[in-house]
Amino acid sequence: MPPIIEVQNLSKKFREITAVDQLSFTVNEGDVYGFLGQNGAGKSTTIRMLLTLIEPTGGSVKIFGMDLQSHRREILRQVGAVIEKPDVYKYLTALENVRLFAKISGIGRLSEAKLMEELELVGLADRAHSKVKTFSQGMKQRLGVAIALVHDPKLIILDEPTNGLDPQGIADIRNLILQLSRQRNKTVVVSSHLLSEIELVANRLLIIDRGKKMVEGSSAELFDPAQTVVELETLDNDKALAQLQASEWNGLLQPTRSKLIVLKMDRKQIPLFHQSLAAMQVPVISLQPRHSLEDYFLQVTTGKQHVEAFTN
């Protein structure tokens, strides 16, 4: 069974700016794959590259085991997507929109009953014949989901699906994702800048920052004591880092944007690490283990809004 998505060394440069930098990750069948990062971290660019909206400057993408560039059409036939605000044709009705996108999605003509069923699923059946311009943001969001699902895709990609939604809307989307995964057996990729949204639904996670992969793993792994993140602050971090790189701890060092040195190790190893630092005469100021993904996310992604989001 090949992975549903296999991304290798994917890069995108916009003139001077590198939006996505050598990104590699794998999504397996049945995953709810959480894609985390700040605004501007490269999530949207990556997702748009998966959907062929943006052409990569490097790397490769395989979906359903096929190369995305050469098998674009076959792949996209099996993909449903909601990209940020799910904007649809405002001058058409909900039903007309669903029918139109069903047609383009390469499936045969669908009966009105089937289309209505789709609208029923997202609770818009009673508004099927209203023009979309009369819809609230939440209704548009649900319509977007109906459009993403109408052709019964294997893979569903949701880019920031909760942007601009009220708490009830956010909860609805969360439930829908779980429903799709558990009841319909879909593979879902969902991106967000809010960990709190993702951690409740995702079984696997990828955190990116400035286009680079920070961490990837299953939720179980990332919350696992065996994967404890240790933050080290010393009087001279540069020197300490050099010393660690030369030591047997090198393999545990993690990339980071913070001034601290970050390592990932089993909780049980921490006393040994202490001793080792003392032996190397590293002038330690603090050494702090973090055991939750949340802390890690906070650390790799700095920004006021995230802090607020987490402290709420």
Binding site: T52, V79, V88
Partner: peptide, 14 residues
């Protein structure tokens, strides 16, 4: 502008 272009272009059409 309407935002439908991205949706349209994720469909299996060249």
């Amino acid at each position: 502008n309407m935002g439908t272009l991205r949706l349209l272009l994720t469909k299996p059409i060249s």
